[in-house]
Design a binder for these strands. Structure first.
Length: 81
DNA sequence: CGTGAGCGT
């Protein structure tokens, strides 16, 4: 299950998402999108979880929760296409 | 509302 995470704090990193989501199940990979030239976070990211049911649990539990001083959005990802 | 990179694997 790939998960899209938006409205992250500007200090939030892939490791932070990993720590957050791994509480609900096995996290396969995480990524926070950063501008590769400025180093500024784009304030959104992706989490991939091994188990779909745990992923859904993480989504409903973490969506609209406070993280790094901000309320975050967690939902299913769509591929880049 | 808001959907990703790498640099040669």
């Amino acid at each position: 299950m790939n998960i899209f995470v938006a409205k992250l704090g500007r200090n939030t990193t892939s490791d932070d998402l990993n720590a957050l989501f791994s509480q609900y199940g096995e996290v396969t990979s995480t990524k926070v999108i950063m501008d590769h030239e400025t180093g500024y976070s784009k304030r959104y990211g992706f989490v991939e979880m091994a188990n779909d049911d745990e992923a859904y649990k993480a989504i409903e539990d973490l969506n609209d929760s406070e993280f790094d001083g901000s309320n975050i959005v967690v939902k299913k990802s769509t591929p880049r296409g």
